[in-house]
Structure formats: C-alpha cells, structure tokens
Simulated assay, not measured.
Amino acid sequence: MEIDYINGLKTDEIFGMSKYQSEIHSRLDNVKLNRIEYPDVSKVTGVNRVVEYFAYPFIVKKKVIENNVKHVTRQDLAFLLELMDLKKTIVTCHDIIPVAYYNTRNPIWKLNAKGLRKAEKIITVSEFSKKDISKYIKYPEEQIEIIPPAVDHNLYYPNRSKKCLSKYGIGDSEKVILYVGAEEPRKNVQFLVNSFSKLKNRIPQVKLLKVGTPNYIGVREKLLKQIETLNLQKDVIFVGYLSERELAELYNAVDLFVFPSLYEGFGMPPLEAMACGTPVITSNTSSLPEVVGDAAIQADPYNVEKFVEEMYEVLTNEEFKEEMTRKGLKRSKIFSWDNSAKKTLKVYKEL
C-alpha cells in the first residue's frame, strides 16, 4: 500500500505533531510513503517561509498519485483540500486551538476549516478534540477516528539521576521543577512563574527549568520582565530546544513536572514525565484529565494559592510522591504506539 504523505515543511526537529507521525509510520512496515514536503530554503536563499508555504499546493499537485490515499498530516495544512480536488483524503487534526481557543479571524484558518470539512476521514488524538472538531468545524463525529499519541518506553523510562543538572548550575540538594512547552498565552507560563515565586517563599532551595522555545511574538520579553520583577533571575532557567534523549534525561533528573496549560488537544509531556517516574501536576482543563487519569494531580490553572499547595505537597511528602510515581508509571503504559499504528493502518485500509 502506498500513501501520499502530505507533511508540509521538511525538518529534522522532533516536536509534538512530527513526533506523532514519525512514531506511527515507523511501525507501518507494509506501507510505502510518497513523501510530499517542501524544503526549508529560507536560511539559504532568504526566501520568506510564508512564500514557501503558499508555494506548497503546486508541489502537492505535481506529486500526488491519483489512486493513493492522501494523508494530510496536520490541521494547518487542511487548506490544501479547499484549494485542489483531492480524493481519498485523511487529515490528522490534533486540535483546533486557533478557532476554539483564540477565536482567530486568520483567513488561512478559514480555508483550513473548509478543507477539514472536505476530508473523508479525520484522525484526532483525544475525545476532547473530537468534540471540539465536531462543534466548531461542524464535521460529523462518526467520521472522526481517535488515535492517541503514546510514549516510546525504550526512551522514556525510569533512569533516575541528577547528573545532567550540573550543567545548569543546580546542586544536588536543590529541588527542581520542570516545565516543557512553548510560552504562548494558553500555556499559562506566567501563572506558573507566579506560583513558583510563592512556592520559593516556602522552599528557598528550588529551581524552575523551562524547556522549549517562545513560539509567540513578545511573550518571552513579557516573561523575563515578570521574572525580574519577582527577583527570580537566578531561579528560572531557560533551556531551549532539547533532543528527545536529552529530554528523557531531564525528566529523570527533576523532582516534579508541571503543566498548567489552559487548552491542549492531548498533551504529551505529562505522559513522558510519568513514564520516567516523575510526579506530575497538570490542569483540570481540556483533554488533560483524559490523558493523565488519576495518576497526576489535576489542579485549577487559575488558582495560584492552590497550585502552590499542590507543588509543596509533592516536594515535601515522600510517601505521596512515591504513590504518584507508581500510578504514573502504570498510566503511561496504557498508551502504545503499536496500537496507534494498527488503528492508523485500519483507517488507510477503509479508504
């Protein structure tokens, strides 16, 4: 079986959506992918990446094969279905955050919404996302297949060691809280910094590690100003992008993982942290309760005082921390990339 794999920008970076596709397709032995991507030539030629993006439909039109199933691997490429006549189409739609959360009026997202409605099947990652796609895009629920992400347990597993923290100037005696993700408004990082500041009044020897890029204009500057106002310049450490191996090492080095996001289509970092034996506090909003179940603390992402209490309890109650670790390890094993690959193959065969 050959699939027209319409994947957008060609990149070696691994992040949520690209990780999802690579994990699943690495397990589909009998499926050949006709990769249709556009190269990142912006750094070499100076061509704006937006120009590359709008040239992509011409590349797709030239390279698709008529009888192949067409798999558009992310929701922000769904506009292709509106701009050209494609048969046997699947779109993987992880979330519709621009529409459902930010209420965008971006014309490209109007095209994406129209394109999503033309897909013969939509694959999404959670029951929450399925309901939002149905509600906001007006797409029939019976044509939406839930295929959740999972954890690579050969990479994310308990291998506890604080050794890697020395490169960030963190001593063995200090407690370390980790956040992995962007800094856009829905990620609620300013709330986290406020909560951390109050926690530091109770546990002076604590650091906050922040992994990931800003991903939103002006947000890093605002965050740095907040950190300076709270006098946390030495206590909040920005790490930037990490490889998966480095990330697994960091999950294993910290005392607590926090994820106070206001809106997620799924949310993989809490699952990865649990697979490494790290206790997790996350939000009680959107898809996150569906992901973590009773294996993590589900906190109100608007209540700073309560969030501080939850962090303090995990960092000071060893028995409670061990119980959370046990539950987290058990929960993380429910999610299997092999099962997700089998479900994806079933969708391909149906078309």
Rank of each mutant, 00 (worst) to 15 (best):
I137W: 02
S134R: 04
V41R: 06
D255V: 01
G212H: 09
L271S: 02
I24D: 11
V64S: 05
D132V: 03
F54N: 05
A182I: 09
Q205H: 13
N48G: 07
N67C: 06
Y139L: 01
K162Y: 01
I123V: 00
Y102V: 11
V291N: 05
S173N: 14
Y56P: 11
R105N: 14
K63R: 13
N303M: 07
Q75I: 01
L351W: 00
I146P: 00
C93M: 04
S173Q: 11
L315H: 08
Y216F: 15
G293Q: 01
L199F: 04
V99Q: 13
L116P: 09
D294I: 03
D76G: 08
K70S: 11
C276E: 00
K187G: 10
K187H: 13
F54S: 05
L33F: 15
I90C: 10
E184R: 15
L178T: 07
V69F: 05
K167S: 05
A78F: 15
V308G: 06
A299T: 07
Y157L: 15
E310Q: 14
F191L: 07
K130L: 03
F58Q: 10
D300K: 08
A296E: 03
F191S: 07
V151W: 08
V180Y: 12
K43D: 12
V193S: 05
P279K: 04
K87E: 15
N154C: 09
I137C: 03
V304N: 02
S129V: 02
Y101T: 11
G267N: 05
K222Q: 10
P301W: 11
K88E: 05
I237T: 07
S287A: 14
R117W: 01
N201Q: 14
P269C: 10
L315K: 06
D76A: 10
S166C: 02
V254A: 03
V31S: 10
I14C: 06
A299S: 14
V291M: 03
A253Y: 03
K167Y: 01
L262G: 06
A150Y: 10
P107E: 05
F54T: 10
A299D: 07
M274Y: 00
R331T: 01
D132E: 15
N188F: 14
R220F: 07
K43S: 14
Y156W: 13
I14K: 10
L230A: 07
T73Y: 14
F191W: 08
K321G: 02
A78V: 14
R220W: 01
H94R: 02
I144A: 03
G240W: 09
V47P: 02
V51P: 00
N317F: 00
V236S: 07
S42G: 04
E290K: 02
L345P: 04
A341D: 08
M274E: 00
Y168Q: 01
S332V: 06
L33S: 08
R74N: 15
I24V: 15
T104I: 12
K87Q: 15
T213G: 08
P98Y: 12
V50P: 01
E310G: 02
E264I: 12
P260K: 10
N303V: 06
D255M: 01
E322D: 09
F79D: 07
L247N: 01
M274G: 00
I14D: 02
K43E: 13
L155M: 14
Q21W: 15
T73M: 13
E264L: 13
K61P: 03
